[in-house]
């Protein structure tokens, strides 16, 4: 099953990369959201997958517990999902504010920090 998941991870990465290479800021934001999903799934897959048995210890457990899903990647991903959401909201709002202030959603035209025409400065001491 890991094989299919690995392919899905690659597909999400590819889609996300394609979105990130767009001019439109909003596509960029969508690309970032996809990227978060891809990375989460990647960590999940690397931790190996088992079907159906969650990492929860039965209350009446006797002896060793075997065959359950790997809890470590799950703990990593759980916080990553929430933080990813927070960051996603942040860049979304950032894109929105940039759109408001600059009047464009085209990242090529957002050139406040790096203006298009830069005169070569002369040497002075």
């Amino acid at each position: 099953m890991e094989f299919y998941l690995a392919i899905l991870v690659g597909l999400i990465f590819a889609a996300s990369t394609y979105m990130l290479l767009s001019r439109s800021v909003i596509r960029l934001v969508l690309g970032v959201a996809l990227l978060g999903n891809a990375v989460n799934l990647l960590i999940f897959t690397v931790g190996r997958v088992t079907r159906h048995i969650p990492p929860i210890i039965p209350l009446d457990l006797q002896g060793e517990l075997t065959g359950i899903a790997n809890p470590l990647p799950q703990a990593l991903i759980l916080t990553a999902i929430v933080i990813g959401f927070a960051i996603f909201s942040f860049i979304l709002v950032l894109a929105y504010r940039a759109y408001e202030s600059l009047g464009t959603d085209n990242s090529d035209e957002m050139r406040v920090a790096e203006p298009k025409k830069t005169e070569l400065t002369k040497l002075t001491y």
């Binding site: 969650p54 929860i56 759980l78 999902i81 929430v82």
Partner: peptide, 8 residues
Amino acid sequence: HNEPGGGF
């Protein structure tokens, strides 16, 4: 703490 769930 014992079942699926938690603060997040």
